[in-house]
Design a binder for these strands. Structure first.
Lengths: 232, 232
DNA sequence: CTATATAAACTAACACTGTAAGTTTATTAA
DNA sequence: TTAATAAACTTACAGTGTTAGTTTATATAG
């Protein structure tokens, strides 16, 4: 009923071998250079054979993106494991540092999931969104812990609009307890952190900014004292 | 010496006609669908004829990117023209609103300059950087005006590291007078604003966030009262 | 042990892309 | 009227994703 693949000896698991070859291509030549024939060449197989494991190029890319999102979420979660749950400021700082480091380690991977580096590909949001949300959840958990401990000081200069409150109420219903201000703060911090990293990865800083990491760490430090003023 | 092009009657200025057709393609089918043959079809010319006006596809894209950066900078500058130079908070707010609106008006254009939507294309930074810097200059001018008027309150919880100070000193030398804290603040605000817009354009908000504009305006409002506390 | 079903490989081909080379044509200047 | 030249053209090549049809190796059923 289920025969073994022909070149089992050379590629025990061709599905993952294809993905690995794809990542290798992406790492060496950039995400835009990804192509099925190149993968096939690297593996010594015929290009159409890939279609036995992925319906088409876009589905292969989606698989890569899902793996990348999972990797980011795992990396985020691991980055705070060694820090006490009481040290909310340090945890937030660690998350921020880790976010940038993960992006810089493999910029193509970062741009693959947050940019649109591939011609004709649009991510199927219903599939990628859930995995993408995992890293945001890590951030929100840290903020929520700080909030529950009374250590978080969100900015309350403006009241949340009724529309925002409604949106966050819906979100709470799905995801369990979470303060509205914490929800907003998670999105705002993510946006800030993500923007700074994007500018750096995309090489959009002015030429005088020779050390974007310093900018980033300074901005991150200010966030910590802004939202966890009694950390120290 | 300089003969008129053959189809001058149909396309008085073929160079700009090519760019317009390119933008139309980008707007209708997305940046990734941009291709020379499609442009040629739309204009009723042969594809290789484009090479008389642009050395290759990448140079055409670069021309589009330069136009887009100029458009953004012009839009930013125009957005504060009607606001008094004394109302620093309102000016910053207008810049923020305009940044998002410019991006949302033509998301493909935004992704063309800030993403990497085209296979095999890498922007020539030495050409694009100067134009790209114009919009940042508008932001920095607004912040600097507020600073000179004594209305700006940058966060000084952490001192700028020596490396940051050195970087900013170099920058000052080139661009003229600008406070170090103002320089940092411009980059930080830009990163924040850019990140929130990127997340929205890239459809990376969690599915419950049905109104990203509200998130954005709230974040922007908080920035205003944070950095211009006495604005009202 | 043989025969058959089937998953997984293959080859060949199509339509598309960017681009290079060589050729023709229209316009200008001598 | 003729020669020069810029700008169009046709043709061709190598690359791409993808489909269709075919072969082959394996696993199970009789």
């Amino acid at each position: 009923m289920s025969p073994r693949p022909h070149n089992h000896e050379r590629h025990p698991n061709l599905q993952t071998a294809i993905k690995e070859a794809a990542w290798k291509q992406i790492a060496e030549l950039g995400a835009t250079a990804l192509n099925l024939r190149g993968i096939a060449r690297a593996l010594g197989i015929a290009a159409p054979s890939i279609y036995n494991y992925f319906p088409n190029r876009d589905d292969l890319i989606t698989a890569l993106i899902i793996d990348a999102f999972a990797s980011l979420a795992d990396s985020q979660a691991a980055s705070i494991l060694s820090i006490s749950e009481q040290e909310h400021g340090r945890r937030l700082f660690a998350l921020g540092i880790n976010y940038r480091e993960w992006a810089i380690a493999k910029p193509e991977r970062y741009q693959l999931i947050f940019g649109t580096p591939l011609a004709g590909y649009v991510a199927p949001l219903d599939i990628t969104q859930p995995v993408a949300g995992r890293s945001l959840a890590v951030l929100m958990n840290v903020l929520m812990a700080g909030h529950l401990a009374g250590k978080l000081r969100p900015e309350t200069g403006h009241a949340l609009s009724p529309q925002l409150q409604a949106m966050f109420a819906d979100w709470q219903q799905q995801r369990g307890a979470a303060d509205e201000q914490v929800q907003f703060l998670a999105l705002s911090i993510w946006g800030h952190v993500h923007g700074l990293v994007s500018v750096e990865i995309g090489q959009q800083y002015p030429p005088f900014i020779t050390n974007p990491g310093e900018i980033y760490r300074h901005a991150l430090g200010l966030m910590i004292i802004r939202y966890f003023p009694n950390s120290e």
